[in-house]
Design a protein around this nucleic acid. Sequence first.
DNA 1: TTGAAAGCGTTACCAA
DNA 2: TTGGTAACGCTTTCAA
Lengths: 323, 323
Amino acid sequence: MSVREIAKLAGVSTATVSRVYRGVGSVSAATRAKVQAAIEQYGYRPSHLGEALANRRHGALAVVFPGLSGPYFAELINGVESVAVPRQVSVHVIGTHLRREAPDELLDVARRVDGMAIHGGTVPKTVIMELAARHPVVMIGPDPHPAPVVVRTDQQAFRLLVSHLLADHGLRKLVFVGNPEGSPDLTERWEAFAAAHAELGLRPGKQLRTGLEQTHGVQAADEVLAGGFDGAVCGNDETALGLMMAVLGRGLRVPGDLVITGVDDVPMSSLVSPGLTTVARPLAELGATATRLLLDLINGADVVPETVLPSRLVRRASCGCRD
Amino acid sequence: MSVREIAKLAGVSTATVSRVYRGVGSVSAATRAKVQAAIEQYGYRPSHLGEALANRRHGALAVVFPGLSGPYFAELINGVESVAVPRQVSVHVIGTHLRREAPDELLDVARRVDGMAIHGGTVPKTVIMELAARHPVVMIGPDPHPAPVVVRTDQQAFRLLVSHLLADHGLRKLVFVGNPEGSPDLTERWEAFAAAHAELGLRPGKQLRTGLEQTHGVQAADEVLAGGFDGAVCGNDETALGLMMAVLGRGLRVPGDLVITGVDDVPMSSLVSPGLTTVARPLAELGATATRLLLDLINGADVVPETVLPSRLVRRASCGCRD
DNA sequence: TTGAAAGCGTTACCAA
DNA sequence: TTGGTAACGCTTTCAA
């Protein structure tokens, strides 16, 4: 089923079929009806390839993440789709899982889309630069590399959080749970963690390097508990929740035996008991903004190089505040 | 940068450029070198659209899920990619989030891929049939609808699990946590749950309808605890883990105050304490098999209509077995 | 070994 | 309001 066949069946030209299908240009009611009938009878849908080739536009964009699992990415993707879907742009979600072949894969993905939004910390500098040189690229979250366009959240609330634990709750032995080397986001948080300590003339607590998933939080429990810390400042909610689960599973209390905090404010965090004190970040908005900018970039518009979205401290019971 | 330009720059025909790029056909060493040089100098990569149009093949397939979040889907996707990536086929991951517009979206996605693997319970019968009529389609997991090709796991181990709780642990008041109406997978599990009760001359326990995410498990806690049940048989590990977390957070004990079991054996389940008793399902293999069959279907091969993979009971501490 | 030309399925321009 | 025709960027067949 191609335009040509439908055109023949309806006794019109391909141009007319195209016009009818897309509802543009002027077509008499009579011809329109004829063509519509043929289209419906044969269930004709134009080939995406033909369309895209002629338009020199894929009508698709890619979002590249280190992984896919978890509420963090789910929310980000929601944001992306909330702007892409209404504009009829399809979204390719790529999880590199940080595997080696990722760079080559991305070069290949680039051939199928009009532009890409790349999460910070997923691909090496050289690849980003190579991609950005040829295609519209927007970075989601901080990345140490010189990138064309970046959308991110600030670290203010996170610093406030650490100060809150130190100053208001009087904690003096905090662990930072997360690996600053693995992710630019965590690098910034570690710096804010250190800065908040320094501000009070304290030495920054220890750093416990783990991944960003719930399982990593569970696995960190033994070491955290053995370290005699009074509070665990986790790099994100998922590790915090994993840690909390492990601590509770040992019959200990939060915040009584250990204060725990996270970052992101994923849905679980407000539901568990004790509620998780965390930093709310506008994840959906982050994805949506990145996508809007990317589409602007694709359309050749001028785009501001850096957009910073606000984050917000959310105090619940896990830090010791009464709920 | 198109074939034509490269051809001109290298002083050869487009056919020769194409041959060199793909490494097929016979080309003299001298011309090959000339062409290679031009390709590298200009960083030429053939347009995917041109390629696909000429080959009448997208080199891509879609996997359709109800959601994206969580370890269950992550593992399934791993399986899919483990076979697609080596074959140079790119994967479009679609999360419908069960939204209304999903059917239309899928029809549109179908225009961009060579075939699709659809998770059971994600789209209405009519849509599946419409898709399957025009495109290669493989279903992942049970679906009540007549589908061309299905890959699934059996329910044997799940039934065994329920019998184990009833017969070996002597539990008499089990809740089934999950909504059979929402998912064909859960429908089958509910049936197995009822059958295991019937086998011992017992009446099937109550059904507590919730979603399949961790948050839903947390939210179900109050109702489960108020019901005076001795065991909660959850539809999957995620709800089980959420429930467990909520129960522990209230200062209660698992399995002492409540036995909890799941299905899937996601990574968290072996890490938490108490370890979660569950049914291990070969999720990666499920995704991989579906993908293999889909590619066969695309290549016009004959394909067996139903493949059933085995599941396995994994006893840990949460059911009351000593670890 | 190489090239000319047709074809893949659209859209868009220009005439009619 | 319509249609013819030239792109779009590639692969492939057939000759040379």
